[in-house]
Amino acid sequence: MLKNKSTIIFFVLFIIGISSYMASAVKVQALRDRLDPTQIVSALNVSPEVLKIASGEFASLLADYLLLKASVYLGGRDEMPEANQKTVSTLFSQSANLDPYFFQTCYFVQGYLPWWKGDYVKKGIEILELFNAHRDWDWQPGFFIGFDYFYFLRDNLTASRYLMEIAKRHEAAKSLGLLGARLAQRGGETITSIAFLKTMYERTENEAQKEEIARRIEALNGVLILEKGIEQYVWSFGHPPETLEQLTATGILKTLPKNPTRPNEAYLYKNGKIEF
């Protein structure tokens, strides 16, 4: 009798257990399905150092996971709430600190953070600096930083420093040195540009490249002559000349230097600054 009773209780409890499990499992599944993984993103609000300590020898694997988490969320979306931008930025920062060599993280950082503008430009540069310091065989992180300074921060001088630095370090990025020199000149550092290009000229073996660098040096020497002329004009008349021809008309320069980089051999003059 007692045995029958316990058997019945067992079966009743078993059936209740199974039914509850099935009902709840279906409900949980339905609720989970509503959550699209690409719509949510989260990051542990801890410093990368703590993650590094906790992950030990699996730090690099954790870096892959964090990057994957960010990239799954980012997908092909263009816009996202500010809070999620912050989370993605944290994930990038953590991943980069755990593995400061992985180019895919570097690429994603450049592809997203600076374009969100505001503080994210500097945050992106801060992360890219990690890659630039570690990937000493690669010119791209330095180029990304230079680009961000030029395009987002409008800081030609700093941009030129990065571009000239990577041109010095990497054979493949020599042509970026020309761009760096141009930005340095725009930033008011013509003498630095000439000095840099002269070093580059001495270090280059390719004849075609040497010829191009020599042309740029000649153009910059012309810029330097014009800048000095403008300086003297300002000193004499209290304002910059409206056109470059005024320099010859007032006798400050005998002739205007020729610009070998342009078909008409003329320099562009805007707002008191020379461009070539």
Partner: peptide, 13 residues
Amino acid sequence: LFSLEVGKVMVDL
């Protein structure tokens, strides 16, 4: 799931 430096991910795993 990765597009760049896949060899590195393989080494990690």
